[in-house]
Structure formats: C-alpha cells, structure tokens
Nucleic acid binder design. Structure first.
Length: 905
RNA sequence: GGGCGUAUAGCUCAGUUGGUUAGAGCGCUGCGUUCACAUCGCAGAGGUCUCUGGUUCGAUUCCAGAUACGCCCACCA
C-alpha cells in the first residue's frame, strides 16, 4: 500500500464521514449500563450558512461529545434547526420582491406555502455543512422548531403560563420595526449610537396673564425627535425645579398643532439635561408612556405601521417620519420657534433583523410576566447548580435577571407558531381594540386561550370564533429546546422511528438535564436565560448543568467578522484549502477559554502542518514495520526498555493533563498538550532515537503510542485520526477496535522513576548541550569525535544508547577514555571532550561568558534572598529549602562554566 | 450613567493558591536535505510582564488609582 507523502484531506473526509454515518456511530439511546452525556445544539437558523462562528461553536461541542463518547458515556448530541421567524420571512419576501410581489399580494396562505417550499429546499443546508465539519450529532433525531410535535410543546407552554396568569394581553408601548411591521422584544431592539441633533423648540405659554406677568412668553424643550411633537399631550418639569415654579398649573400651546398642553411635574425629569423641560409624547416614547399612564394624559398615535405619519399628524399626514422631521424643523425655523440645535449622539434601537430604526409604539400585544419565572432561575445560578465558564458570566446573567422586564412575545408576521388564542366575535370588541390606541393597559375580555379551537364561546355560546393572527417570537420556541426536542409533552408513544424503537419519555428522563450548553455570549439573554426559566417552569429541573461561553470570531484587526463588512473567512473555503481537521485544530488551539479569537488565513497553517506531521509519522511507522517484516499479533509491549518506558511516562503525563484540561473546558490547553507530545516528544525524540534500533518490540511501541495519540487527537481532528486508525488496522495483524470514533479513551500507566530513566533524561540533556556547543564552536555541520570520561557503569549506559546519541548529536564516533585532554561539557556523572580542529574558540568562549554573566546575576539574587533574615523568618520552610537548592545548583553550574572557560586559556 | 473584561516577545496567546534563570506558536536570523515529513530538522535573537502607589521578606501574580482598548446593560428626552 502506497501512502502519499502529503496528507490529502479531500480523499479522506468524505469517505470517513460516510463510514461514521453508515455504522450509526453517532447514535445514542437509553442505556442503563452507561452514564448519559448530552448536549443540545444551539439550533442554527434555517436561513443560515456555515460561518466561522458556527465552526467554532460546533467544533467545541463536537470535541466534548467525542471525548465523552470515547470515555464510555452514552453521548447524545441533539441536532436541529430554528425556523427563525423574521429572518426567514425576510429572505422569502426578498425572493418575492424579485417578481415584483409583496406578501400581501399573494395572501397569508400562499406566502406560508412558499415559506415551506423554501424551507424544504434550503432549510437543511446548514445541517449538511455541519456534517461536513464532522459534527457527530445523532442525525436521526433532527428537530425543527416548526414541526407539528414541537408546536404542541409551544401551545402547552403558552396555555400553562396563561392559566397561571403569567401571560397577558395589553396595550403597551413596545419596540416596533416599521420595515418588518412587527413588534419586537427589548432584546431584539439593538441599541446603536447614531449621529443626530438635539433641537431646542419653543412652546408658547398660553396663559396670557401669566406670560405677561413673567418675562417668559414660551418655554423651551429639547428633543432629538421633533416629529413626535405632533403627538405631545403635555410638557413636564421636575417638581423641585425652581426655575419652572412659575409654570405650575399653566398650559402651553403645542406649535403647529396648536393644541393646549398641561404642564405636569415628575421626579423622573432630569433637571440637568437639556432645558429641564420635557415634551411628553405618551404614544411614542417609553418614558413618556409611563408618564402618560401616571398622569392620565391623552395618548395620540401619529404614525401608521410603516412609520409614515397618520391622520393625527395634520398637514404632515402621509409623510415618512424622517421626511416629516425635516419638514417640521423647517416650519419651526420659519416660525422662529427653534432656539438652537446641537449635534447629539442618540442611542437608538435598531431592528436586529433588518437594522431599521425602531419606532416605539403603543400597541396591543401579548406579554410574559418575567419576574415570577426569574426567581427560580436566579436561585439555581446563585447556588451554582448551573455554572458558567468563564465564571464571570454568572454576574452578567444575574444582573440581567435581577432587572428583568416583561417579554413581548407576539409578532405581526406570518412565519411561526400562531398564538393558541381565540376571540369570540359576538361578545367581545377586543379585535377592534387594536385600532383604539387610546385604550391602554391589560386587556382580558373576550379571549379564549386553548390548545385546540374551542367549539363555542364559553360566555355566549357563539360558534363565531377566530384565532389570533399573530405568531410567537421565535425565542418562545427556542426556550423549550432542551426538552421539546424529546417530544415533550405528548411524546410519540412507541412508534418505531427511523428504524429504531425509542421511548421518548424515557429518553427525556435519561438525557435531561443536559450536561453543558455551549454558546456565544450574544444569546445569553435571548436564549440561555430563558431556557433556564423554561426548564425550571415546565420540567421543574435545570436544563443543563454548565454553560460554556466562547468568544467572538474576529478578523486580524480585531473587527467582528460579518458578511456586511466583507471581512469573513469562510470555513468552507478553509476546509477546501487546508482540510476540516486543520480548521478544527487551529480553532481549538486559538480558542482560549472565553476570549475572542483573531483569525487570518495563515492561522490555519498550524493545523494543516500538524495534520501533515501526523500523516508522515504514520507513514514512516507503517513503512518501517513493513520493511522489517515484523509480525504483530498484539500491541502489548511486554518488556519495555528504558526508552520505551520514558515514552510511556511522557504519554501518561499527557493523557492526565489532557483529561484535566478537557474536564475544565480548557480545550485549547488540551489541544496544545497533545500537539506538543506528538510532535516534540514522540516524533522529534522517540522516533529519532529508535530509528536504528528497530525490532518487534519497537514496532509495537510505535503503534501503541500512535494509536493512543490518534485517540487523544480524535475529538479535535476526527477525520485524519480515523483514517490513520484504519491504516493501522489494515496493515498489522493486531486486534483493534472497529473504529476510532467509538474506541476506548487512552488510559494512563504507571512508570517507575528508576535510575536508568533518570540517566536517560541526563543523556537527552547532554545531547541538547552538545548540539549547542557544536553550534557555538561553529561545528554544527561537522561530524566530530566525542570523548567520554566516566565510571565503567556509566560507560555501559552510554554504550547502550550510543547509536541514537551519535545520530542526534551528529557525531563521528564516541571514544571512552580514562583521561581526556580537555573538558568541554560535564555534569556529576561524566566529562566530555570534542575533537575541535578548526573550531571557533572565540565564539565558544563568548557564549560561555554570556552564560556565566547571566548565572552570576541569578546567584546574586539568590544570595541576597538567603542573606535576608526577614526572608528566612517569614518564608515557608519549603520555599527556603527550594531557594537553598537553587543556590547550590546555580553555583555548581557557574563553577562548571568557569572551569570550561579556564580549560581554553 | 451602571456593570464587566483585557493590557506579558513584532503578532496571537500560556503563565494554575505571590518565590520560575517568565514560556509556546507564528514571524525574523543562522545552519542543515543524515533512509517519514522543507506542510521538515537543529539552534538563535527578541520582554524594566502598560504606568503609579500600597500590602509583603518578596508582586507579572494580591489591593487601590491612572491610562488605553473592548464588551454588556440603561427611560437624559
């Protein structure tokens, strides 16, 4: 069998993926003999295409799942997608626009049909890409938030919350996207600073008597949104503001509209801001809304749904809000009612889907009361029943939960779950309430909340019932994900599904709570916090024990990668250029716990190079075995020599550290440890050492360590390791597990620290020293003779290791002598000399001087410390001892270097 | 305005309860094709650990402040 000298991922990945899928290696089921380990995927939007953030997030999950699977857990990674209400609707609307159609032109039914058609065609693209990434999900279980069974879960949750009084309907001010024409939750209105103006507008005082008594004929209010003045129904000042004491009980005239406005007083007004006088627009500003309710003001809605001005806007009716702003400012300027304007940064809410500036709007919507749900969700985190990694997110989470606001869950779009709400046309007028924006507050009358459409109205018996047209916020489905994916609450009975018999209820009991949730910080509030609330509310148990929050993927300059900025690195392109394992390895190496990662194409070279290293080490080992024609029946090494034991010790240490790192979610550390061991310990030393001392035992050792190495690496680089494992299986007779993906995780072995092992370590050090000395002497490329002076026992050790020492220190030969002319390198056990004809003695001395100088400064520091009585008194005995040892060691080294220098005089 | 985070080699980052001769990868420099790999090997240069105080026998590490950058939340219109 020929093995190419370059690893070619393209020849391997597709084939290996198919093997995994065909053997059902990713499948998980209830198994009483195994502990479960489960993760639910953060369901990607069906509109999604794989980006670097997905690659990072899903590789992390896959690493943990593969690690636990190999450790013997029944590892389930639940896959699925999110219907992504607004996002998907926008995509299909855009398609429609190409045919010059709006969704209203074709109607709800037809539009929904097109949405489903789109979903069928493109909805699983992202899942196919995740497979390509190597994601070892149980792909039989793919769930979609718009599945029928999933819809049942949502209805159940809605009805339960409603019956508990935790869902209500009411006219409140909400975030309105005039482009998507829907309400949004607070989280969906992203604050971004934009450049604007603060306009100072004069409002004439109407009370003539008062205005003549006082000098002022008008008051000045400051606003960033002058167009909203058309909906003003009051002005407000702080009750303690003496500057405006004279305004008490006065009325002012709203310019343009010529409406009389009350002057109200409220503590909420900041006397220091603007002029201290605020225009109050209860229908178009959250603060003003609260003021309006508190002071019983009129609510005048001046805008249509698309943010053009409506009939209440007088002459500006029909104009867009920003055009109207310009027109109003112009008119006010003409009337000399603008005192001044200042440039001003406005933190305006933007629609998180289409980035349009949010318009606060009073509207009849459905809300979830969050405070009661938050209580338990706060406790479990306070008490560390759910832990965050890194831990600092605990504070962020709690801070948000302590200040949680009610959640607006109704959306005026067509793609999503219809609210399980029905209205009786006969006995209620609630439907009309939608247009009566003046009615503010909670609305309960004439509503039937039910999973199924009621036969008749419970009040009047009418059969004329209609379902609410709105759909639910996408996140109202996502928050049920950890248990709704198991077909909660109805389950499926005992139907065989995709060739396997699953008892859904048992599945849920077995796999829930899940082990860990892995996500980016962006959706901590959207999703993580709400899942915790939903889990506790509906399952009476936390949904996951740990939350791993990883960083954001940025470009080289530290700017967040985004399609619109054009600075993305496409993971699929990286896969194509360097291979999936290279992508995964580099990401895992760079993803320090919780910190953002800065990417450029070159960052993936580490991964590619490492894959190639693994490939070539395998190639060498297999060739060597084939050449030597040894026959392997087992990989058990019965009688390891000191080199073997040295390697086994290093391997065990690596396994231990890798385990700890993975357990603590320090995946980058684990990745680094395996890399160092494989490349530098195994390849650079062991393989080089045994090249000319090859036999059956070595062959077993090489394969044994190679197998353990690829096992350790498998979670991070699944494809190449599985391929290598296959190559090993096919080319040796030893009994090995069927596939790496389901193989047993490596175990540590105990290796005694005996004399020969200690001497080996010294020999390795000596080889490194010899390399250095040769370079200092300018003899790097010359094979020279080494002379060794040592006791006969030590000489025997040297002779045993002579072959590899000669090779690795690049020596002509080694002579053992009673007497050497000069010592060029020494330790407690041996003195060495090199034949140094033509050497650069000056450079060698200079290098010695440098070492001597640096050691002297260390010695000085240590001496000082040991001479300090405070140190001796206060430092721990152990520390003092350590310091004394260091003193001896440094002194000895120094002595040696000085002697060496003297020998060259 | 409130909260959080980061600052270590040219770049990206490690540095585990204060005591290290402060590390790695990439990049750079020199040498090297000795029968896996030049996607390689051997070695080297490069750091007053952002600054200022404090605690301590001792601070890159703990505390306070400053500076810079970043993130999140928030009803200064």
């Amino acid at each position: 069998m020929e093995i190419s000298s370059k690893y070619n991922p393209k020849e391997v990945e597709g084939k290996i993926l198919l093997q995994w899928l065909e053997t059902g290696s990713f499948n998980a089921q209830v198994r009483s003999d195994k502990k479960p380990f489960s993760i639910v995927i953060p369901p990607p939007n069906i509109t999604g295409i794989l980006h670097m953030g997905h690659a990072l997030n899903n590789t992390l999950q896959d690493v943990l799942i593969r690690y636990r699977r190999m450790q013997g857990y029944e590892a389930l990674w639940m896959p699925g997608t999110d219907h992504a209400g607004i996002a998907t609707q926008n995509v299909v609307e855009k398609d429609l626009a190409k045919q010059n159609l709006r969704k209203e032109d074709i109607g709800r039914e037809e539009f929904t049909a097109r949405l489903w058609a789109w979903t069928d065609k493109y909805g699983s693209t992202i899942l196919e890409q995740l497979k390509k990434l190597g994601a070892s999900c149980d792909w039989r279980r793919i769930r979609f938030t718009l599945d029928n069974e999933y819809n049942e879960a949502i209805k159940e949750a809605f009805v339960r919350l409603y019956e508990k009084g935790l869902i209500y309907r009411g006219n409140y001010i909400i975030n309105w996207c005039p482009r998507c024409k829907t309400a949004l939750s607070d989280e969906e209105a992203v604050r971004k600073e934009i450049d604007g103006w603060l306009y100072y507008i004069k409002y004439p005082v109407s009370d003539v008597e008062r205005s003549t008594l006082n000098v002022q004929r008008y008051v000045v209010v400051a606003t960033t949104r002058p167009e909203t003045m058309l909906g003003d129904t009051a002005i407000a000042v702080h009750p303690q503001d003496e500057r405006f004491a004279w305004l008490k009980n006065a009325t002012v005239t709203l310019p343009i509209m010529e409406r009389q406005l009350r002057v109200i007083e409220d503590e909420i007004i900041d006397m220091a801001f603007g002029t201290g006088v605020v225009k109050v627009t209860p229908s178009h500003d959250p603060v003003d809304f609260a003021l309006g309710k508190k002071h019983n003001l009129d609510f005048i809605n001046i805008m249509h749904q698309d943010a053009t001005l409506n009939e209440h806007a007088g002459e500006f009716s029909g104009m867009d809000r920003f055009k109207a702003r310009e027109a109003i400012v112009a008119l006010l300027e003409e009337k000399k009612l603008i005192e001044k304007k200042e440039p001003y940064k406005i933190a305006a809410g933007h629609c998180y889907r289409c980035h349009t500036i949010i318009e606060p709007r009073v509207s009849l919507q459905w809300f979830v009361k969050m405070k009661p749900l938050a209580e338990a969700a706060i406790t479990v985190v306070e008490e560390d029943k759910i832990r965050f990694y890194p831990a600092r997110w605990k504070k962020v989470y709690l801070n948000w939960m302590y200040n949680i606001q009610d959640w607006c869950i109704s959306r005026q779009i067509w793609w999503g779950h219809r609210l399980p709400v029905y209205y009786c046309k006969q006995c209620t007028t609630t439907l009309e309430l939608k247009t009566q924006s003046a009615i503010v507050g909670e609305v309960k009358k004439g509503i039937v909340v039910s999973k199924e459409k009621p036969q008749r109205c419970p009040d009047c018996g009418s059969i004329d019932l209609v379902q609410d047209n709105d759909v639910l916020d996408t996140w109202f489905s996502s928050w049920l994900w950890p248990f709704a994916t198991f077909y909660w609450p109805n389950f499926r009975g005992q139907k065989p599904e995709a060739g396997s018999q699953m008892d859904d209820k048992k599945e849920l009991e077995y796999f829930y709570p899940t082990a860990v949730l892995i996500t980016a910080s962006e959706i901590l509030f959207f999703w993580v916090a709400r899942m915790i609330m939903a889990g506790l509310e509906f399952k009476k148990e936390i949904p996951f024990r740990e939350v791993l929050i990883h960083g954001t993927v940025r470009d080289e300059r530290g700017i967040k990668m985004s399609k619109s900025l054009g600075n993305i690195i496409d993971p699929l392109v990286i896969i194509d250029k360097f291979g999936t394992d290279a992508l995964r390895f580099s990401l895992m190496l760079l993803a320090a716990s919780g910190s953002d990662i800065y990417l450029s194409d070159e960052k993936f070279l580490v991964g590619r190079n490492f894959a190639n290293k693994i490939w070539n080490a395998t190639r060498f080992i297999l060739l060597k075995i084939k050449e030597s024609q040894v026959v392997l029946d087992t990989l058990d090494v019965e009688d390891p020599d000191v080199l073997d034991r040295w390697l086994l010790k290093e391997l065990s240490g690596t396994i231990r550290e890798v385990d700890i790192s993975f357990d603590e979610y320090r995946i980058n550390d684990a990745t680094k440890k395996i890399y160092d061991f494989f490349w530098h310990t195994f390849c650079d030393w062991y393989i080089e050492m045994i090249k000319e001392d090859f036999n059956l035992r070595r062959a077993k050792m090489l394969l044994r360590v190679l197998v353990d190495s690829v096992k350790l690496l498998h979670p991070v680089m699944p494809f190449i390791t599985e391929e290598v494992f296959g190559l090993i299986k096919r080319s040796c007779g030893a009994q090995l597990e069927p596939m790496l993906v389901c193989s047993r995780w490596p175990q540590t072995v105990i290796v005694a620290e005996d004399e020969p092992l200690a001497k080996l370590t010294m020999l390795i050090e000596t080889v490194k020293e010899l390399r250095n000395i040769k370079i200092d002497l300018g003899l790097a490329q010359k094979k020279v003779i080494l002379e060794v002076k040592a006791d006969s026992g030590i000489v025997a050790q040297w002779k045993m290791h002579e072959t590899w020492i000669r090779r690795l220190a690049f020596l002509e030969r080694i002579d053992y002598k009673e007497h050497i002319e000069r010592t060029i390198c020494k330790n407690d056990l041996w003195e060495l000399n090199l034949a140094i004809e033509g050497a650069d003695i000056k450079n060698f001395i200079a290098s010695l001087d440098k070492k001597i100088k640096s050691l002297e400064s260390v010695l000085e520091k240590v001496t000082q410390r040991l001479g300090n009585e405070h140190f001796l008194k206060n430092a721990s005995e152990e520390t003092v001892q350590q310091e004394q040892l260091k003193f001896q060691e440094v002194k000895r080294q120094l002595q040696r270097f000085k002697e060496l220098k003297d020998a060259f005089k």
